[in-house]
């Protein structure tokens, strides 16, 4: 019996240590890992949107036909594409920032929510 109590106490001790480490992890390693994931996500999305390549070729006629009208048409087509892609990327960027913000705010919100409920 004594043995079991010791085991339970030891496990409980470990649990409390883990519990104390939880908020520290949340704002350090946890937050860092989430930020890294978001950066990778945005990087991959940029790779498929190739916004930089579109910008780099902004003055290049799309069908390599070098008359004035084609130049203008191409330029506006590219502008349109760039705006579309940049807008989409901005939405993703906002979403990523929101996720990070929610991560950072969540413990505070939960604590405040619980305090409010029990007060």
């Amino acid at each position: 019996m004594h043995n079991h109590t010791t085991l339970a106490l030891k496990a409980l001790g470990n649990f409390f240590i883990e519990l104390l480490y939880f908020p520290i992890w949340w704002y350090s390693f946890g937050a860092l890992s989430l930020i890294k994931k978001q950066i990778t996500f945005l990087h991959n999305r940029e790779k498929s949107l190739v916004i930089l390549v579109w910008i780099k070729n902004i003055f290049k006629p799309m069908y390599e036909q070098h008359d004035a009208i084609r130049y203008i048409l191409s330029f506006f087509a590219r502008i349109f594409q760039i705006i579309l892609r940049v807008s989409y990327f901005i939405i993703l960027l906002i979403a990523s920032f929101s996720i990070i913000s929610i991560w950072l705010a969540l413990p505070i919100l939960v604590v405040l929510g619980i305090i409010y409920q029990i007060s």
């Binding site: 991959n44 999305r45 498929s48 949107l49 190739v50 390549v53 579109w54 070729n57 290049k60 006629p61 799309m62 069908y63 390599e64 594409q81 892609r85």
Partner: peptide, 19 residues
Amino acid sequence: QAARFNLGDGINKAAICTP
């Protein structure tokens, strides 16, 4: 994951169209 976010042939048209 790639299929979910695939935006078609972006890299293609980004440079020059190649019909």
